[in-house]
């Protein structure tokens, strides 16, 4: 049997508060979000900080929920697919971080990459301008309005980084780390 003690200790050592891996749903976003808020309240986190953490958590989690390229069809009507991914929230050296990972289609990789590269070089004022501009635009057909969530994450984070690795023939895996 696998011993989870070392695994658990390593997570603790890395400051991880919780880590979710698996199929996501709106109710998971809501319930983990609520716990996260309660945890930050207990720690008497400033409202401005806890709102930033919550905001990035929701954007990243809903990103996985809407765009992850790892899916499983369900039979229930209306809820056609489950989307898999992972979202981890932790606190290290006094700073909260939100780490998320999911598969993306190879054909969408360039779009993610160019947007993220652009966001990484932008100042907070430039990010604000881009956010307001994108908010007024009609969503692109294939993107379901993605992009705005990433811009929002970049605006709220004090540090943002990402890495994309090749996963298989059709997909890559993207990891985004946002530090508050």
């Amino acid at each position: 049997m696998m011993d989870t003690y070392t695994f658990y200790q390593n997570m603790k050592r890395d400051g991880i508060i919780f880590s979710f891996t698996g199929p996501t749903s709106q109710s998971v976003v809501e319930s983990i979000g609520e716990l996260l808020r309660r945890k930050m309240e207990l720690e008497e986190t400033k409202m401005s900080v806890s709102l930033k953490v919550f905001s990035i958590f929701v954007e990243q989690m809903q990103n996985v929920l809407n765009y992850s390229a790892e899916t499983e069809s369900t039979k229930s009507p209306g809820n056609d697919e489950l989307h898999y991914g992972m979202v981890t929230v932790g606190k290290k050296d006094g700073k909260y971080f939100i780490l998320s990972g999911n598969y993306i289609e190879k054909q969408n990789t360039a779009r993610f990459q160019s947007l993220l590269d652009r966001l990484l070089t932008m100042s907070k004022d430039e990010l604000k301008t881009l956010y307001l501009e994108q908010r007024r635009k009609e969503p692109e057909k294939s993107s379901k309005g993605a992009g705005l969530g990433l811009i929002e994450t970049a605006r709220k984070a004090s540090h943002l980084e990402y890495v994309i690795v090749e996963a298989d023939k059709d997909r890559n895996f993207i990891t985004i780390n946002a530090v508050i």
Binding site: F54, S55, Q62, R135, G145, L148, G149, I151, E152
Partner: peptide
């Protein structure tokens, strides 16, 4: 109290 980016749109 809080709204996400797609609500903002």
């Amino acid at each position: 109290h809080y709204f996400n980016s797609s609500s903002s749109k």
